[in-house]
Design a protein around this nucleic acid. Structure first.
Length: 539
DNA sequence: GCCTCAGGGCCATCA
DNA sequence: TGATGGCCCTGAGGC
């Protein structure tokens, strides 16, 4: 993933439009089916789509998403005949029009990864009729149509695609588990110092396929805020009078509120006329209607206390951008960071923020430093996943991944370019985002989930186990009472939220495994908290 | 009652 | 000879 021409100082939301890159092999006009798409409107929208598995022309919705006729047939046969394929290589075979037949194993894995559903293949083999995914297809169509409409206003956006994939293992520095970052962060204020990684410290020249390019002069619409109250974005002075950021970064956070909210409730900020959410989805409308602040109670006070320690998204964004900018400044013209490294830096800075959040919370401070380290080392990836999920719920548009820098990348772009593991991760994460959006996750619930993940009494070597347990129980109770009070009509919300945590855990483990593999290939920056956390766990 | 469209079956072609 | 992929059939659901 190589962000050629990436400019950290221009962090406007990025939206990739697959149709605009004729040179992209994944958008190639491959073999077409003779089946005509049924309506003009759908035909135009879908004819532009390429199959997320192989890049061929889609023929309609099949087993959960838009795919080509060939992948439809392949998936159907695989499921009906209960096929079990084995990859002769490393389960990461390229998947495109010309190579899709080479490895059925990777092809089937990619089918599942991008979201094709086994359960849509009928066990009784009954023909005809409609399936239970009708509403999903309708929603997807509406979403795509909206995107097509919005493209007319966003023509200057451009993200170039590359397919080169090369790993250059680098001489990695000796890493000492639990040596530098974690202990330093927990015991001092070193976190507040700058972290400038000298060029060449483990940065590979590798490029992974997705390649985003920004344009300085594009006129961008800030991303909308489906759940405007989910995050703090209230740093006075961070966004200056004309929406310009300090340190020369412009536009990305222009959707942030210009003034701090008076309290930490999740009432949407801004007036209908001024807030981006005014023209937003039914979800935000539902939030406005249902999320009136509950009356003050002990639980509310407790949850508000938990919210007080929440990091400001604007500050985090600024920190990440500043870090990227320092990195850019330290590099030569021809030594730009590739996209994967940029993503790692974003994750690393986010992780710093999460550690800072934890160590600033009163309940966490009460624990011994050893316990703090054990807990953080156990759940750091879950916190990262949770943080990402909540960012998507709060700001992500359907079909897009919202980065901490305020940029957006289309999910289909990532999925169609990524390998099986990354596709699967993105797909699973997006499924979870959808579920959380459906559950109308709010800030109190989000912070409770973070605490539940952090205060895990089952972590090995924790000395104050009882204390951790009590905190978890307290947060659990608070979450239950909050969901019952704020969503009286949704009696099962508490249970539904807790049921999401195993999936968060599972995704985080897959993330760790993926990052570790990339680390072994020399793709991860060495002197980073992210790498250290990975090492600690694997040792 | 007609139309739409997604799942299933058939079969020529391919490797 | 099994796998692939293009084409057509079927029928529930929507209008």
């Amino acid at each position: 993933m190589d962000l050629a021409g990436y400019h950290p100082q221009l962090p406007q939301p990025l939206v990739h439009h697959p149709g605009s890159y004729p040179d992209n092999e994944f958008n190639s006009e491959g073999s077409s089916t003779s089946r005509e798409l049924k309506t003009e409107q759908h035909g135009r929208a879908e004819a532009e789509e390429s199959c997320p598995i192989c890049g061929d022309k889609v023929s309609g919705y099949h087993y959960g998403l838009l795919t080509c006729e060939s992948c439809k047939g392949f998936f159907k046969r695989s499921v009906q005949n209960n096929k079990h394929y084995t990859c002769a290589d490393r389960q990461n075979c390229p998947m495109n029009l010309s190579q899709r037949k080479r490895c059925p194993s990777c092809r089937f894995q990619k089918c599942l990864a991008v979201g094709m559903k086994r359960e849509a293949v009928r066990a009784d083999r009954m023909r005809g009729g409609r399936n239970k995914f009708g509403p999903l297809y309708r929603r997807d169509r509406q979403m795509k149509q909206q995107r097509v409409d919005s493209r007319a206003n966003t023509a200057p956006y451009r993200i170039k695609m590359e397919t080169a994939r090369r790993h250059w293992p680098s001489a990695s520095n000796d890493l000492h588990p639990m040596s530098s970052h974690t202990s330093t962060l927990l015991s001092s204020d070193a976190f507040h110092q700058s972290h400038v990684y000298p060029s060449g410290t483990g940065q590979s020249g590798a490029s992974i396929p997705l390649d985003c390019t920004t344009h300085a002069d594009r006129g961008l619409t800030p991303p909308s805020l489906p759940c405007p109250g989910l995050y703090h974005r209230t740093l006075p002075g961070f966004v200056q009078e004309k929406g310009e950021m300090a340190f020369g970064c412009s536009a990305a956070p222009s959707n942030y509120p210009l003034h701090p909210a008076p309290d930490s409730s999740f009432t949407p900020r801004g007036t209908p006329a001024s807030s981006p959410c005014s023209s937003n989805t039914a979800l935000s409308q539902a939030l406005i209607q249902t999320h009136t602040p509950p009356p003050a109670t002990l639980t509310t006070n407790f949850l508000n206390q938990l919210l007080e320690g929440e990091q400001d998204e604007s500050q985090l964004c600024a920190k990440v951008l500043a870090s990227l900018q320092r990195e850019k400044a330290s590099r030569g013209k021809h030594d730009r960071l590739n996209t994967f490294s940029i993503m790692c830096k974003m994750a690393d800075q986010t992780l710093h923020g999460l550690v800072e959040w934890a160590r600033n919370t009163a309940l966490f401070k009460e624990l011994k430093v050893e316990d703090q380290m054990s807990l953080l080392q156990s759940c750091w990836s879950e916190l990262l996943v949770l943080d990402h999920l909540c960012r998507q719920v709060a700001y992500g548009k359907d079909g897009c991944i919202y980065l901490v820098t305020g940029q957006q990348i289309e999910v289909l772009t990532v999925v169609s370019q990524a390998g099986v593991t990354l596709s699967s991760l993105v797909s699973r994460t997006q499924d979870l985002v959808y579920k959380l959006k459906t559950l109308q996750l709010d800030r109190h619930e989000f912070v409770c989930l973070k605490y539940l993940v952090l205060f895990n009494p089952d972590v090995k070597h924790v000395q104050s186990r009882r204390q951790v347990e009590q905190t978890q129980e307290r947060v659990n109770r608070g979450l239950m009472e909050h969901t019952q009070r704020s969503h009286p009509g949704h009696s099962d919300k508490f249970g539904q939220l807790l049921l999401r945590l195993p999936e968060v855990r599972s995704i985080s483990l897959q993330v760790e495994e993926y990052l570790y593999q990339r680390h072994l290939l020399g793709d991860l920056p060495c002197n980073s908290l992210l790498t250290e956390m990975l090492h600690t766990k694997h040792n």
